[in-house]
Simulated scan of single mutants.
Amino acid sequence: MESRAKRRPRDPDATREVILEAARTLLAKDGPEGISLSEVAHLAGVNRGTAYQHFETREKLIEATVAWASDKLFRAAFGDPETIGERRVEEIDIAAMTERLAAFAMENHELCRVWLLQVLASPDPSQDPFWREYCGSLERWAASDLAVPGIDAEVLSVMNLAGIFLWPIWARAHAENDAGRDALAQRFAKETLRLSMYGSLRADAYPGIADRLRGGGE
C-alpha cells in the first residue's frame, strides 16, 4: 500500500485530519475488521507513534472517524451544529436539503458509505448527531400537517439516506467527469423529491416542489 505523496503536516489538528481521512479510505475499502492503526498511519504518511498519540486504539480511531464523518454530514445538510438550534418544520427547505446531501454524497462517497454502514449497524444510532437531527426532523415533519398521515419517520430516514449515499457508487461507474456526476446527483435529488411528493408530502403544502418537478423551476 502506498503512502500519501505529501509532507506530513506539523499542526496536530492537520495531522489528526489526515489520519481520519486515511481511516475513512480504509474503512470504506475493508470495513472495521480490515483496519489497523499501522496501515492507517502508513496511508496518512505519519509514523505509527504519531497515530497512537492521537488514537490509543483501533476502536477509538473507528469511533472518531464515524464522529468526524457525522459532523461533515451535519454541516453539509443543516449548517453549523453549534448555532442551528431546533427549527420549525415549516422552516426546513426539503428540496434544498435533498440536493445538498445528494451533491455532498457524490463528492464524498467514501465518507458517506462509512457513516451509513457504521451508524446504522450500531445498537443506538440516536447517539449520532447527524442521524439524530435528520431522523428527528423527519419525525417532527411527519407529525405536522405538511405530511400525509401514518409515516414511519425512522424507516423513511433509512430509505432516504441509503439511497442518497449508495447512488454515487452507480453514478461514478457511469459518469466520466465532474459535470456528469453533478448531473446524476441532480437526477437523483429530483427523483427522490418526486417519490416524496406523491408518497409522503402533502402536495398542496409544497407548490414550489410540484412546479419544479413539472419543469417550471430549477
Rank of each mutant, 00 (worst) to 15 (best):
K72F: 07
V40F: 05
V40H: 02
A51K: 00
L73P: 06
W68D: 14
K60F: 14
E56S: 15
V40I: 09
K60N: 15
A69R: 07
T65I: 06
R48T: 04
L73G: 06
V46R: 00
T57Y: 10
A69L: 04
Y52C: 05
E59Y: 07
S38N: 10
I62D: 05
A51N: 01
G49K: 08
E63Q: 12
A67H: 11
K72S: 14
N47V: 02
G45P: 03
A44S: 05
E63F: 13
F74R: 00
A41W: 04
F74N: 01
D71Q: 11
S70M: 06
I35R: 01
E33D: 15
Q53M: 15
L61M: 12
I62R: 07
I35N: 01
S70N: 06
H42D: 15
S70T: 12
V40T: 08
L73A: 07
A44D: 01
S70L: 11
R58E: 11
T50L: 09
E39W: 09
A67R: 12
H42L: 15
K72T: 14
A67Y: 10
K60Y: 15
H54F: 06
S36A: 12
A51T: 01
S38L: 13
L61W: 08
K60S: 15
K60C: 10
V66T: 13
G34R: 08
R48N: 05
I35E: 00
G45Q: 00
H42M: 12
R48Q: 07
S70P: 04
E59P: 02
S38Q: 13
A41P: 00
V46Q: 00
V46L: 01
A41M: 05
V46S: 00
T65P: 09
N47R: 02
A64P: 10
W68V: 04
T50P: 13
K60M: 15
S36F: 07
I35D: 01
T50W: 01
F55N: 02
A41N: 05
I62W: 06
T50A: 05
N47M: 00
F55L: 08
V46W: 01
G34N: 02
L37F: 04
T57M: 12
I62G: 03
T50S: 09
S38T: 14
I62K: 00
V40M: 03
E59L: 02
A51E: 01
V40E: 02
L61F: 09
A64T: 06
R58T: 10
Q53C: 09
K60T: 13
A67Q: 11
A44L: 03
T50Y: 05
Q53H: 14
L37A: 11
L37S: 10
R48S: 05
A41I: 03
A69S: 13
L61R: 01
G45A: 02
T57I: 07
N47D: 12
L43A: 15
A67V: 09
L37M: 11
H54K: 10
G45I: 02
H54I: 00
E63A: 14
A69N: 13
A69G: 07
A64R: 14
E39L: 09
V46M: 00
G49S: 14
L61N: 06
L61K: 02
S70R: 03
W68E: 14
V66K: 08
Q53K: 15
G45F: 03
S70C: 08
H42F: 14
R48H: 10
L43P: 00
F55T: 02
N47T: 05
H54Y: 07
S36R: 11
